[in-house]
Design a binder for these strands. Structure first.
Lengths: 185, 185, 185, 185
DNA sequence: TATGAATGAGGATTCATTCAT
DNA sequence: AATGAATGAATCCTCATTCAT
C-alpha cells in the first residue's frame, strides 16, 4: 500500500539520480555520496534498495532497456520505406526521451572495466537494437545493395553527435538518412 | 647524452602506459599506481616527469595532436573526389595508428568533468578535424547539396564502430562513404 | 538524542587529540593518522567532523578563543592595582587551564606558513589579548611612565617559560610583575 | 686548496639555505628539495655534506652556537651595572645578527619531537645562555633581591617579540630592562 | 524504512634518501 | 664533486560499504 508506493518512489529517485550523474560525469567519477545527495536521501539508504554500486548500474541498464523496448512501436504498414521512416522517428524519439541513458551507454562502451560489470546487460541491449534495425532493412528491396552495418554507423554517428552537441539538428539528419535509403531503392 | 635519452624514454614509457590504460578503462578508473605498474617504474617516479594526473592527460592530448597534425598529408590533385578519397584513407590510417588515442577521445567527450580538465586541448583538436573535413568538401561541386554535418556524423559513426568492434570492415565502410559522395556529385 | 551527544563527544575527542599532538609536536609534524590513533577512531572518521587538517586547526583556534574569552572575568573594583592583580591571576589561570593551546599559539607564531593558514583567527586572538592588557594599564595612573609593550613582553616571557619548563614558579613571577607595576605608581 | 674552499662554500650555502627555510616555515615543513633549490644545488648533493636532514639541523645548531659563543665579548669593567648594559647590548646585537637562528630556536623549543632530535645541542646552548646571564647578575649587589629567572623571562620576552614583530623598538626595551635593574640596586 | 557514524583500503601526491653516471 | 633519476613509505583525503540505532 502506501509504504510500497513510497518505497518504489525512493528506489526510482535513487536510480534517476544515479543515471543523471553517471551520464554526466561517468560511472567511476560518481560516488555513492554524490548519488544520495542528488536523490535527497541519506547515505546508507541506497543500500536498502541496491546491493552495490555495480548492481545499481546493472539495474539502470535493465530498467532503461525495459522502457526502451516498450517504447518501440509496432510498425507494419505496406510501405517499407514509410515503415523505416516511422522506425527512425521512433528511435530518435526514444533517444531524446532517454538522453541520459544513451549518453551513459555511449560512455560505457569504450570502457573495458565498466563493460565487464554489465557484460550480459550490454550485449542484450546492443543485440536488440541491431536486430530492430536489420529487421526493418530486410523488408526493403534495394536495387543497389545497402550495407546494414554502414547504415548502423550512420545512425549511431548522428545519435552520438546529438548527445554531445547543443542544438543538434537531428530532424535534418533524419531526412539525410532517409534520402540515402531512398536513393538505394 | 645517455641520461637525456633514458629520461626521454622513461617519459614516453609513462605516456604510453597512461594512454593505454586511459583508453582501455577510462581516465577516472585508471590510478597512478596502475600506470606506474604498466610502465614498470616506481610509484613516485611519474611525478618527476608529469606534475599531475591531469597534466599527464593534457600532455597525452597535446602530443597526440602534434602527431596527428603532422600525419595529415597535403593532398592537392585536380580531382576533388580523388582528393577526398585520399583524405579518407589518410584519416582512417591515422585512426588505425592512434587507435588508443581515439578511444580516449571518444570516451572523454561524453564526460563533463574530464572534458573540463582539457577544455582548450579538446576544442583545438575538434576544430582541426572538422576544418580538415570541411575544406575537402568545399572543394567539391555537388549537384545535389551535401550536408557536411551529416558526412561528419557518418565518418564519426564508422570510426566509433571501428574502435569498439573487432574485425570491423573499415575499408568497406570507406567505399560506402565515397559512393555516397559520388552520388551527390 | 543519543546520537547527537555521541557525535558531539567524538568531535571533541578529535579536537582534543589534535590540540594535544599539535601542541606537543607541532602542526606539520602531526599526521591525521596520529590524531585518529590518539582519538581512538578510524582514519577516515575525522573527515566526518572536520573538512580538512587546516580547518581542524582553525576550529581549535576558534573554540579555544571562545573559551578564553568567556574565562576572562569582569574586574571592576576601585583599586586599579588590585584590578591588575586580579587580571594577572585570571590570565595565568587561563594559561594553566589551556596550556596546550598556548603552547600551540607560541609554536605557531614563529612559523610563516602555519600562520598563513589561520591569519584572521590568529590576529583576532592576539588583538583581544593586547587590548585586555592595555585597558587595565590605562586605568592606572603612573608617576613614572610604564611602557605597555614592555609589560607585555615581560608577561609573555613568563608565560613562555611556564609553558616550556617544568615546575616553573609562576606565582613568584606574578609577584615580580606586580612589584614592578607598583614601583611605577 | 681551490676545491676545499669551494667545498666549504657549498656546505655553507646549504646550511644557510636550510636555516633560512627552517626558521621561516619550520623544520618539518621544509623539504630537502626546498633546501637544495634555495641553495641552488642539485637534490642529491646535499647528502655529500650532511648525512641526513636531522644531522643538518644539528649542524645548524652547533655552528650557530660556535658563532654565538665567539660573539660574546669579554666584559670586565669595575662597574657591574655598566657591564650588564654592555652585556645586554652584546646579546641583542647577537640576536639581530642571527635572527633566523633565534627564530628557529624559539620555534623548536615548543616542539617535543624536534627537541628530541637535538637534545644535547639544545641543552648545551640553553645552559650557556643562562650561565652568561647569571654570571653578570651575580656580580651586582642588589639592595632588594632580583630574581634571575624573572630577568631571564623579561629578556626572553623582549627577544621573542623582536623576532615576531616588525619594527620592534628593541633599544627602548633595553632601557626598560636596565632601569629595572638599576631600581633594584 | 531510514539515518549517518564508523571503517580501512585505496586515491593522488610528496617525502627523505640512494645510487648510477 | 655533482647530477637528478629512481624508490617506496608516508602524506592528506575520498571511497564503497556496514551497522547500530
Amino acid at each position: 500500500m502506501r509504504n510500497e508506493i513510497k518505497s518504489k518512489q525512493t528506489k526510482d529517485k535513487i536510480l534517476n539520480a544515479a543515471l543523471n550523474l553517471f551520464s554526466k560525469n561517468g560511472f567511476e567519477a560518481t560516488s555513492i555520496r554524490d548519488i544520495s545527495k542528488e536523490a535527497n536521501i541519506s547515505l546508507g539508504l541506497l543500500y536498502n534498495y541496491y546491493v552495490s554500486k555495480n548492481e545499481l548500474l546493472k539495474e539502470i541498464f535493465n530498467k532503461s532497456f525495459e522502457q526502451i523496448k516498450s517504447s518501440f512501436e509496432i510498425i507494419d504498414s505496406d510501405d517499407p520505406i514509410k515503415n523505416f521512416d516511422l522506425y527512425l522517428s521512433n528511435t530518435f524519439e526514444i533517444v531524446k526521451k532517454n538522453k541520459e541513458f544513451w549518453k551513459l551507454m555511449h560512455s560505457i562502451r569504450v570502457s573495458e572495466n565498466v563493460i565487464n560489470i554489465l557484460k550480459s546487460e550490454y550485449e542484450e541491449i546492443s543485440l536488440f537494437i541491431i536486430n530492430k534495425l536489420e529487421s526493418h532493412i530486410n523488408k526493403i528491396k534495394f536495387s543497389s545493395p545497402l550495407n546494414p552495418m554502414f547504415l548502423f554507423a550512420m545512425i549511431d554517428g548522428v545519435i552520438s553527435h546529438y548527445l554531445i552537441l547543443e542544438n543538434y539538428p537531428i530532424q535534418e539528419m533524419k531526412t539525410n538518412i532517409l534520402d540515402y535509403i531512398k536513393s538505394k531503392k
